[in-house]
């Protein structure tokens, strides 16, 4: 059982909940950038939470089904078509042997998730099927999908058709976002003006944004003068190479803040001034180029409450689709 890749889309990868415990040797978590949407896709087709799905960036693939299957597409507004006939997003539907799944133009968001009943059956690497392309690991030979690839599916255990995620639980994709951050790490290196600029600018996402990092443009941040500490390097934004938190925001040379996502480089010599809170990482993952973003400062308590609210949304969805 499986699916043949007729057209791979632009940067389609196999992802799951991620790979944990290896960041200390430079292997980042990887996994779906929008975890809620990929969780929803699996629930819709009756898969276990850890099943692997396809993450499609901006442009959907074209897939030929060589056996009947139940499919769900969630995440970005990337309208699915079966044999060129529109099918709903956020709802499971059946496809038959010989059917072709393709997609219309993306209208909002950035990444769509396709779950197949049975889940994608590729070998686990260090406990995950997620593709980490920089390290040539996971997925299909550690790379993005290519034309002609065969995607094997696992055995189906109780798939379901016609299940839908209630409107209220679907994420929205506004073109202006507010992303909550906790200031910290090396933010003391910013001047008061630099800090105000960081929190007061409508940052625009650049087209180079990818699974490693989301680079924004819009202003230049002012750093305090200093004598470089031994080993740090001469630029005011340099530090002795340090670990980078997932979600941390570094500002090389004071321009173009970069939010690291789930394929993060694990460390380096640029000073980070803030970190996106865990609950808002999915929203970063759904940001397409040119979107404007404000970084909004919150404290630890607010961030933890947001995390609990997010967990509650996962639990509610599980109940709704039980």
């Amino acid at each position: 059982m499986g699916v043949r890749v007729l057209k791979p889309g632009m940067s389609t990868t196999i992802q799951d909940r991620g790979r944990y415990g290896y960041y200390s040797v430079g292997i980042p978590p990887s996994g779906s950038l929008d975890q809620f949407s990929s969780f929803a896709a699996n629930l819709l087709v009756g898969n276990p939470d850890e099943a692997a799905v396809l993450e499609c960036t901006y442009l959907g693939p074209q897939l030929l089904f060589e056996a009947p299957c139940v499919v769900a597409v969630t995440g970005a507004d990337l309208p699915p078509l079966v044999n060129r006939v529109p099918r709903p997003l956020w709802e499971s539907f059946e496809v038959s042997e010989g059917d072709v799944l393709s997609f219309d133009y993306l209208t909002a968001g950035a990444r769509a998730y396709i779950a197949f009943s049975g889940g994608i059956d590729v070998p686990e690497v260090l406990g995950s099927r997620s593709t980490y392309t920089l390290g040539s690991m996971g997925g299909i030979n550690g790379r993005v999908l290519a034309e002609g690839d065969w995607i094997a599916l696992g055995p189906v255990d109780g798939s379901r058709v016609g299940r839908a995620v209630p409107e209220a639980l679907r994420p929205t994709h506004p073109y202006q976002r507010e992303i909550r951050v906790m200031m910290g790490l090396f933010d003391h290196r910013l001047t008061a003006t630099g800090r105000e600029t960081f929190l007061g600018t409508d940052w625009r996402l650049t087209p180079v944004a990818d699974r490693t990092g989301f680079r924004y443009q819009g202003a230049e941040l002012e750093f305090k003068d200093r004598t470089p500490p031994f080993g740090a390097g001469s630029d005011p934004s340099n530090i002795v190479d340090a670990p980078y938190p997932i979600g941390s925001i570094q500002v090389p040379s004071g321009i173009e803040p970069i939010v690291l996502h789930r394929d993060a480089v694990s460390g380096g010599g640029y000073c980070m001034v803030a970190t996106v809170i865990g609950a808002d990482m999915d929203d970063v993952g759904q940001s397409p180029p040119n979107i404007t973003t404000r970084f909004v400062e919150v404290d630890l308590e607010t961030a933890l409450q947001a995390r609990r609210d997010r967990e509650a949304r996962f639990a509610r969805l599980r109940e709704e689709l039980a």
Partner: peptide
């Protein structure tokens, strides 16, 4: 002729 993807033209 439409662009299939977002980006710089």
């Amino acid at each position: 002729i439409r662009s299939p993807i977002p980006g710089v033209f």
